[in-house]
Structures are given as structure tokens and as C-alpha cells.
Design a protein around this nucleic acid. Structure first.
Lengths: 330, 330
DNA sequence: TTGTCTTTTGACAACGTTGTCAGCCTTCGT
DNA sequence: ACGAAGGCTGACAACGTTGTCAAAAGACAA
């Protein structure tokens, strides 16, 4: 900047004014300055700028996801990015892999880079460690899962109600022996979904049979193994409810291998690409990750714009998509 | 930092030394300083630090992807992140959406935040604009597609050879009327893959029939429409080669709708989740995005560590995965 | 012309760090 | 007891920018 000022024969403050598009610089000088910036290939240093700036904003936010390459998380990521670019804000990302420690490390790495805000898909259950960041002025929004011991804006899916509607759908098609396949009990949404299953069975006056409940199934392989076991044992369920994406796929894989995919009903939580092209198509309770991400990002920026109203808790509702697998009768 | 120094009754330089884990601070003072940092919830400011530091490193890299939510790109992203975290480096990401202008804007936004390096999945064809960044010391690596008018490290898939092996596979199964479905001709990899098709037909002494070639199919819908048309016209191909992920899916969808999915062979470029669960399973030339991302990131960090040897151009080979659709005979 | 007001410009300090270097305090050898 | 060597510590400037404020320049009325 000093060099640009020298070449344009103005003070460095005037260069700063031109670079930031401030008014009150004569067109004459402004032209000379822009010419100089171009000639010297001047690149504005935003880190120095944000250091000096009164609001200290870095025009960067941090996003902690479970895994940036997982379709649900990356859809969140994309919709957050879309809101951010419109405001000239860049996105720092990191994957926590369901690890509390990695989540905290990522947040701390983001904090030392002075992000303006954080969007977190939580892996940990105690977020009181974020108090420091909040006091320092960082806006914080949680997505997909609730915060623990920390009051902040949250955007969630209607987990339990979504599962209940799915179970009700199976019951309406004549099922009473409905198995439930759930993810790790450390994941808050998994607990919620399981709760929905238990509640709806009670509401339907169907006795809960623990032999039909398999939890802590993380990933395709575990689900496939569990379902294989479930379907070879007696008494056999006539329908399956899969509490997560990969579990649905694992379940279908097992059913296919056993040749039962046209005979046993399946409803999965969360939609996935190609669910419509399998035979039968898979009936799912579809989440709307794009809406969740957008809502969270908009909330974050509202906070950055100074909104200090009490924390809001949004719920994005799931939508049932019937494709065949959930309409098989016992 | 000043406050911490005051509380610990040391100079701010000593605090700096403790925070950076430099040697040569007596354990006595070090303890007092750490106690003070904790009591005041001190958060180190990496932006100020990198401003003052002699190497000016920000411990942040920028990654420009086609779309962070696309499975191929997000797999790249994840493997880059994995290499980066090991070195305490964070990742800024952005989606260019095949738009040259957005690519340039993202790079410029990254540059003004003084990223140490850039990994770019190019949308544009002229990268001479990156000369400024390189001169400023930014390391640059291209992934998935080659750079234009710019000499830099590159990590690519063996596009043309991969397609040729796929076509050869179809020919070996008795096909001679093989249609080709390609992506936008503005995408470098799409051009390469199409070239592979043309070359292999020539090598196999099969006359190229332009009626069997459909290009510029971007996305599932366009591919589906094109394939529907292709399969209802005469003469009909006995096999399809799909030059990209979504095109494969679109093609399969069309075949399913026409009831031809068990009769016409299909080989796709790039693997996708559930390809094995369709009926028939889809034979693909699988890319290895994780290996591509890892190689690119390792290369980038080698450059950041001072490696100044001539640009390297790596090729990660595709692997054929036979699942049934590519083994259908005419 | 002079005085007043407005617009444009620049000097300087400051943001939160770290590099440099000088000075202090120990330790140790003689 | 003295000097040299080495380990710790702190004062100060600097990184590249912007906020503050005052000075300079121009516009206009009397």
C-alpha cells in the first residue's frame, strides 16, 4: 500500500480510501490510485484490515460439520455457502467425525483466526466451552442437533414426529411387527428418533418388542449385519424402520441378499440419491438439508447484524416420499 | 496479551514466547503465564500473529471446488482436509459452479485473506491470472482438470485411457454400436473422455456414427432426455458409455422407463453410491477422489516446505468395477 | 478582498502480535 | 574475587491496515 501511495503520489490513507470505496476522494486522485494498484498488482490484505478495523470483522465464518463428504453435511455446507457469498463472506470448514475433542479443536482453530460466526453440527454434548467465544462477540448457531448446556439459536429436523409419521404409515399398511434400526446413542438425533418409535408404538397400542430394536448401528456394514441377523431369527418383523441414511442402505443390502426386499416393508429416515431407482423404490422421511443450512446461515447473519433477541429454535419438517418399499403389506 | 502479561507480571514478549511454545522461558514464569491465559480466557490472535511473522504464514489454505456438495468434489475436499489437519492447517472452501468468474472471485477472496496455498478444480481455461498470487508466494495445485496457460502441479484422472478401457470392455462383450454420452464441452475432462471414445473406436476399427454421440449433457435430466431419444430412434445402440456420474444415472433412469435396462449394456465413468444395488449393478470406471485429493494436498505442502523442483503432473488411474450392466451382450 | 463553510487530503497512532537486540542474572572456571 | 559464557527477560520497532483529527484547498457570500 505504501508503494501504491508512492507511485500515485498520494498518502497511504488515500489509497486505503480508494481501496475501500469510501466517498470523498476526488475522481482525479482515485484514478491515479487505481492505476497504481493495477500496475503494482496490489493485493489488499484483509487480515491487516480486520486487525485495525473497529468492528474487527474478518468476513469469514467457521462451519463444523460431522463430515464434509457426507451428503447431508455437504448439502448443509453448500446452502450455508450460498447465503455467505451473497454477503462477501467466506467459509472455513472442518469435519468433527463425531469426536468431541475434534469439535473443540476446530472451534478453537476457527476462533484464533477470528471468524465472525460459527455454525456447528454438534458432536459433543456440553457446549459451555463456547461461552468464551460468545463473550468475544462470535455469533453461534447450531444445526441438525441441539446444543448442550448452552443457549443459542438452533435449527433442527422434526426427528421424533417424523419417525412417528413413518411408523404410522407402516401401521396403516397393516404392520404390527415393526423393527427399528438406530444409529449411535451418543448422537442426539438418533436418540430422538428412537424416542419417536417408542412413542408411536405406544400410541398405536403395539407392545414394544426389544428383540426388534437394534441400536448403535453406525455405517452400512453394521446395519447390514444387524438386519441379516434380524431377518433370519424368528419371529421375523414384517417391516423395518431405518433411523438413518446409511442404515437404510445397509438394510436394503441385507434384504436383497436374503431375497426379501420385495416382501418386507422398509421406511428410511433421510432421503438419498437413487432411492427412487432401487426396486422397489425406497419410501423415506426426507429431511431438507438445504433449508436447514439456509435458515441457520440467515440466522447467523441476522445476529451479526446486531439482532439480540432471545434464542430461536427452528424446526424444519420432514416430508414423506412414498416409493414402494414402505407400502408393502405383510 | 497485554492483560495476560500484566496479570502474570511479565512482559508481553514473554507471553508470546509461552503461547508459541518457544523454549527458553523458565518453568516458573511459564506456569504463571499459562495460569493467566486461562484466567482471562485469552484467545491467541493468529491473524495478528501471521501479520507480524517473518514467513507471513496464515496456516490456512483455499480450496476451489466445482460444488462442495457434489460427491466427487466433497470427497476431494475431505481428503485434502485430512492432510491439512495433520499440519494444523485449516481449509477455506468455495464452489465455482463451472463459472470462470466465480472461480476468479473466490481466488481473489482467498488471496486477500492471505492463504498459504490454493488447490483448484478449474472451471476456467486461462489461469494466467494466478501469476500474481504465485509471485506473492502462494503455492498452487490443480486437481481433476488441467490448468490453462499456467505451469503448476496437477493431479488428474486418466480420463481418455479410462474411457478406452471401458469401450474395449464393451467391444469384448460383442458390442459395435456403442453410444457415447458426454458432459459440457467446456469441461476439460469431458473433452478428454470423448477423445478416448473416438480413439478407441478407431483402434477397434469401428466406424464412428455421430448419431450415437450426445454431448453437452449436464445433469440427470438432460441425460435422461437424450437417452430416451437415442433409444427410441433407429438404428439403436446396443451399449451406452456415460461420461459422467449424473449422466450414468440419467441414462439408467431412461433405460428403466423404457424397460431396456436388462437388455442394453451400460458403462459409466466415475463410481457412485448404490451403483451395486441397482438391477443390474452398474459397471463403472471408478475414479479415486480420495487419492487425488491426498496427492494434491501432499504436493501443496511439499511446495510450502520449500520444494522448488519443476512442476509435477500426477495421474491417478481409474479402476474398472464390473457389476453386470457392462457385461450384457447384444 | 476577507471570512466562513465545505470538501479533500494527509500525519499519526493504533490494532495484536513477533523479530531483534540489549541487558540482566546465574553459573562456572580461574 | 573476577571475568566470561550462557540463559532469561523485556523494550522497542515493525507487520499492513484504518480511525481520528487537523490542516489545506476550494467555494461562496459579504
Amino acid at each position: 500500500m505504501r508503494e501504491v501511495a508512492a507511485l500515485a503520489r498520494v498518502s497511504i490513507k488515500t489509497v486505503s480510501r480508494v481501496v475501500n470505496g469510501e466517498s470523498g476522494v476526488s475522481p482525479h486522485l482515485a484514478r491515479r490510485v487505481t492505476a497504481a494498484t493495477e500496475r503494482l498488482a496490489y493485493r489488499h490484505n484483509l487480515t491487516a484490515s480486520s486487525l485495525r478495523r473497529s468492528d474487527g470483522r474478518s468476513a469469514t465464518i467457521g462451519v463444523v460439520l460431522e463430515d464434509v463428504s457426507n451428503p447431508f453435511s455437504s448439502a448443509l455446507h453448500r446452502s450455508i455457502e450460498d447465503v455467505a457469498v451473497r454477503r462477501g463472506v467466506l467459509v472455513l470448514t472442518g469435519s468433527s467425525d463425531e469426536d468431541e475433542d475434534r469439535e473443540r479443536k476446530l472451534v478453537s482453530a476457527f476462533a484464533s483466526r477470528r471468524v465472525d460466526g460459527l455454525i456447528i453440527q454438534p458432536s459433543s454434548h456440553d457446549h459451555s466451552y463456547l461461552l468464551t467465544e460468545r463473550r468475544a462477540g462470535t455469533a453461534i448457531v447450531f444445526v441438525d442437533r441441539p446444543a448442550g448446556f448452552f443457549d443459542a439459536d438452533t435449527v433442527l429436523t422434526d426427528n421424533a414426529p417424523g419417525v412417528r409419521r413413518g411408523i404410522r404409515h407402516l401401521v396403516a399398511h397393516g404392520h404390527r411387527r415393526i423393527a427399528y434400526l438406530g444409529d449411535l446413542h451418543t448422537i442426539a438425533t438418533a436418540v430422538e428418533r428412537h424416542r419417536g418409535y417408542v412413542q408411536e408404538l405406544a400410541a398405536q397400542k403395539i407392545e414394544l418388542d426389544e428383540r426388534l430394536v437394534r441400536l448403535d448401528l453406525h455405517g452400512i456394514e453394521k446395519a447390514e449385519a444387524a438386519v441379516t441377523e434380524l431377518l433370519t431369527a424368528r419371529p421375523r418383523p414384517t417391516a423395518l424402520f431405518a433411523g438413518q441414511n446409511l442404515i437404510t442402505i445397509g438394510a436394503f443390502r441385507a434384504m436383497r441378499r436374503l431375497g426379501l426386499h420385495q416382501r418386507i416393508a422398509l421406511v428410511g429416515f433421510d432421503d438419498f440419491l437413487l432411492a427412487d431407482l432401487l426396486e422397489p423404490g425406497i419410501t423415506v422421511m426426507a429431511q431438507d438439508p438445504a433449508a436447514i443450512g439456509r435458515t441457520a446461515a440467515e440466522m447467523l447473519f441476522r445476529r451479526l447484524d446486531g439482532d439480540e433477541s432471545p434464542s430461536e429454535h427452528h424446526t424444519v419438517v420432514t416430508q414423506m416420499i412414498t416409493r414402494g418399499s414402505g407400502e408393502i403389506r405383510p
